[in-house]
Simulated assay, not measured.
Amino acid sequence: MILTAVINAIEIKENQHLRNNLVPWEPRHNQPSETRQLRSDLGIGPARLRFESDLFDLFHERREPAEILEDLVDLIGRRYSLIAYIFYLFDDNRFLPIGTTTFDRAFDELGIELRTAGRCSWENYQKFVESVQLVRAGLKDWIGIKNVHLIDAHSYLWLLVRLPQKVEQMQQQGLQRPGDLKAAMITLAQGVINRVDNATGSQSSGL
């Protein structure tokens, strides 16, 4: 039952515009989907019981999250996006989804020395969340809005990488798009860069 509930919380797609994009779960490049692979890996034997026990303990706060994350890594491998999404479902004030390639590029843009790809662990995940919290603080200071949620900073980092890619793709296809949105993102990024530098004492190279 728990595995089924997790899969239902992942496979959300009412239409092309209303779908879960916080964890990659649909089939890509002729590869099985994340959820299909999860079903295959866990089956109905001891592995599934262990997985469901870990999640039961997590959501009922019976064990430390660090211990559970490391146990999940041992059980299903370093499937960072999937594991992070489960933790985000558990507590969206403390945890975040992750797409390692996109966020590593965003951190590089902001001069944050953190790499997440292939490094799924409790320590790395905590550093990831802490880095997004730094960006959140920068956004709050820059745009003057107090109520900036952690997921808002997460979305900003995603857009920082993906929006220029989308604009470039549209231009290559001969389509026109006003450049003010991209310019605003870059301006906002520069403000965040300055504030992240002040918080960490580092110097970034800018955009």
Rank of each mutant, 00 (worst) to 15 (best):
N15H: 11
N15G: 11
N15F: 07
H17S: 09
H17D: 12
L18N: 14
R19M: 05
R19C: 11
R19G: 00
L22A: 01
P24L: 09
W25C: 06
P27C: 08
P27M: 08
R28L: 14
N30E: 11
Q31R: 15
P32A: 10
S33V: 09
E34S: 15
E34D: 04
E34P: 00
E34G: 12
R36S: 10
R36I: 04
L38F: 09
R39P: 01
S40F: 11
D41Y: 06
D41P: 02
D41S: 11
L42C: 04
G43P: 08
I44H: 12
I44D: 14
I44P: 00
P46F: 13
A47Q: 11
R48A: 10
L49P: 00
L49R: 09
R50A: 06
R50T: 05
F51N: 03
S53A: 14
S53N: 09
D54N: 14
D54W: 13
D54E: 14
F56D: 15
F56N: 09
D57G: 05
L58P: 03
L58Q: 02
F59E: 01
H60N: 15
R62W: 03
R62H: 03
P65E: 03
P65Y: 03
A66Y: 04
A66L: 07
E67A: 14
E67V: 13
E67M: 04
I68D: 01
D71F: 04
V73Q: 07
V73E: 00
L75A: 07
I76N: 09
I76A: 09
G77M: 11
G77Y: 12
R78K: 15
Y80A: 03
S81T: 15
L82Q: 03
I83L: 06
A84K: 02
A84H: 00
A84M: 05
A84C: 15
Y85W: 02
I86Y: 04
F87A: 13
F87C: 05
Y88E: 02
Y88F: 15
F90P: 03
D91S: 14
D92K: 14
D92V: 00
N93Q: 15
N93P: 01
N93F: 12
N93E: 15
L96V: 02
L96G: 06
I98S: 04
I98L: 13
G99K: 12
G99Q: 13
T100Y: 05
T101D: 10
T101L: 13
T102S: 07
D104C: 01
R105H: 13
R105D: 01
R105Q: 13
A106M: 10
F107P: 01
F107V: 07
F107C: 02
F107N: 03
D108Y: 02
E109T: 06
L110H: 00
L110G: 02
G111W: 01
G111Q: 01
I112S: 02
E113I: 01
E113M: 10
L114K: 04
L114M: 09
R115T: 10
A117M: 03
R119V: 03
R119F: 06
W122A: 12
W122T: 09
E123M: 05
N124I: 10
Y125T: 12
K127S: 06
K127D: 09
F128E: 05
S131D: 10
V132Y: 09
L134R: 06
L134K: 00
V135L: 08
R136D: 06
